[in-house]
Simulated assay, not measured.
Amino acid sequence: MREIPGGLPPQTFSIGALRWSLVFIFAMFGIAKFASYEAEGVAGIAMHYPLFAWMYPLIGVQGTSNVIGTVELATGALIALGAWSHRAGLLGGLMGMATFLVTLSFSFGVPLWQDGFGFPFMGSTAQFLFKDAVLLAACLALALHAGHALRTNGAALFSR
Rank of each mutant, 00 (worst) to 15 (best):
M1G: 12
L8D: 04
P10C: 09
Q11L: 13
Q11N: 13
A17S: 10
A17W: 12
R19S: 03
R19L: 02
W20F: 15
L22H: 09
L22N: 10
V23I: 14
I25M: 13
F26N: 04
A27P: 00
M28I: 10
M28D: 13
G30I: 12
G30N: 13
K33T: 09
Y37G: 06
Y37N: 14
G41C: 12
V42S: 15
V42M: 15
A43T: 08
G44N: 14
G44M: 14
M47N: 11
H48T: 13
Y49C: 06
P50R: 03
L51S: 01
A53W: 02
G60L: 05
V61C: 04
Q62A: 12
Q62L: 15
N66Y: 01
I68P: 05
G69E: 02
A74F: 12
T75Y: 00
G76N: 04
A77Y: 07
I79Q: 01
G82W: 03
G82H: 08
W84L: 14
S85P: 07
R87V: 13
A88N: 03
A88L: 09
G89W: 00
L91W: 05
L101I: 03
L104Y: 01
F106S: 06
F108Q: 09
F108Y: 09
G109H: 01
P111N: 12
W113N: 05
W113S: 08
P120L: 07
P120F: 02
F121Q: 11
F121C: 08
M122S: 06
M122E: 08
T125N: 15
T125R: 12
T125P: 06
F128T: 15
F128M: 15
L129E: 06
F130G: 04
D132C: 07
L135P: 02
L136E: 01
L140D: 07
L140S: 12
A143F: 04
A146E: 01
G147K: 07
H148I: 14
A149C: 13
L150V: 04
R151I: 10
T152I: 11
N153M: 14
G154P: 04
S159E: 13
S159A: 14
